[in-house]
Computed example of a mutant assay.
Amino acid sequence: MTSAPHLLPEDRADYERVLDEALRTATDRPEPSAAAARLGAGQLRAMALDAAALINTAAAAEYAHLVRVREEHRRPSGPSAGPGSNPGPRGEVTPGAGLGVVVTVLTPVLAGTAAVVLLLLGYVLRMVDPPPDVAGQLLSAGWFFAAVTAAGLLAAGAALLVTALRNHPAEAHATGATEPDEVARARETWHHALRERGVLPFLYEALAASDAPPVSSQETSTPHPPSPDLTAPHAD
């Protein structure tokens, strides 16, 4: 038997949705059997969740196709894509994007540190009588770096906002909201195969096994021969 790929965590929610739909099909009958009364939906669901890897083997080919197609669409299109590059809106790679992020983040930190040091020294020297000329220069430089810090914070906030807006479509793609048609078709095919060949047969088999009458120990034990009737008259 072909072994199915390990069920990825991102597909666990899909498996549970298919399982919930199959549970409604398996348990919602006009005349529920005694097994359905003994095994509730919660017990059946727990059993199917524990056997997820085994059940998914029934849809091994469909699930492998889904994983392969999804990985192909997620793979960067540019051959030179690397950790220091940033794919553009059409898949092109923009080198140096990581350096810009580092500069945007470090600028307000370094400028703020310089502003605090220069302003502190400037105000301390200004308290000296008479204040030296360098105190005014330190204060001017400190206020300049304070302005640079404010501008850097605004630029960093704008960069974070732009990054969040750019990553929003990627997050929606990861959750399957705007996934490509080929991936959506592969997912639907896997759902159907998993439901029809995996989950439903498992649930029906569990119900049938629970519906079988239990065999008591008296029935399985060796029958004893009937005891003789002591009240019967003995032959002379």
Rank of each mutant, 00 (worst) to 15 (best):
A209Q: 14
R38P: 00
E16F: 11
G122S: 04
Q137E: 00
D28P: 03
F145I: 04
A209N: 15
A115S: 14
A52H: 05
R12T: 13
V105N: 07
L23R: 01
S140D: 05
R187Q: 09
P228L: 06
H65N: 13
R29P: 02
P95K: 04
S140Q: 08
A48T: 09
L230W: 14
A61G: 14
A159Q: 08
L110T: 09
P130R: 00
L230Y: 11
S33Y: 05
R29N: 06
E72M: 10
V18F: 09
T189H: 09
V101C: 00
G122Y: 03
V109F: 15
V116R: 11
L200S: 10
R74P: 04
A4L: 03
H6Q: 12
A64E: 13
P130L: 04
D11C: 05
A212T: 12
F145R: 02
G152K: 01
P132L: 00
A53V: 08
G40I: 04
G112F: 05
A151Y: 12
A177E: 12
R126G: 09
P214E: 14
V124P: 00
T163Y: 10
M127T: 14
S85P: 00
V103R: 06
V67P: 00
E31T: 11
P233Q: 06
S85T: 15
V183S: 06
L153A: 10
V134K: 01
A58P: 03
V199E: 02
E196W: 00
S217P: 08
L7T: 10
G142E: 07
E171W: 15
W143L: 13
D133C: 01
Y15P: 04
P130I: 01
P223H: 03
R187V: 05
H73G: 10
A193C: 01
A114Y: 09
G40P: 03
R185Y: 04
G176H: 05
A147L: 12
L161A: 15
D229H: 00
A58W: 02
L7A: 11
W190S: 00
S221L: 02
H191T: 13
L44T: 04
V117R: 05
L165H: 10
V103G: 06
P95C: 02
L119W: 04
L39S: 05
P214D: 14
L207Q: 02
A22T: 10
A58M: 07
A4Q: 01
S80Q: 12
S210T: 11
T104G: 14
A13Y: 05
R70S: 10
H224E: 15
A208N: 09
T163D: 14
A61T: 15
L121S: 13
A52I: 06
A159D: 12
G152H: 01
R70N: 05
G78W: 07
T175I: 09
A206M: 13
A155Y: 03
H191Y: 11
E179W: 08
A26G: 03
A97E: 10
V117A: 13
V124K: 06
G136D: 14
A61F: 12
D133P: 07
W143E: 11
L39P: 02
F144C: 06
H6F: 06
S227D: 11
G42C: 02
L7C: 08
S33P: 05
A22E: 13
L200W: 01
P83Q: 03
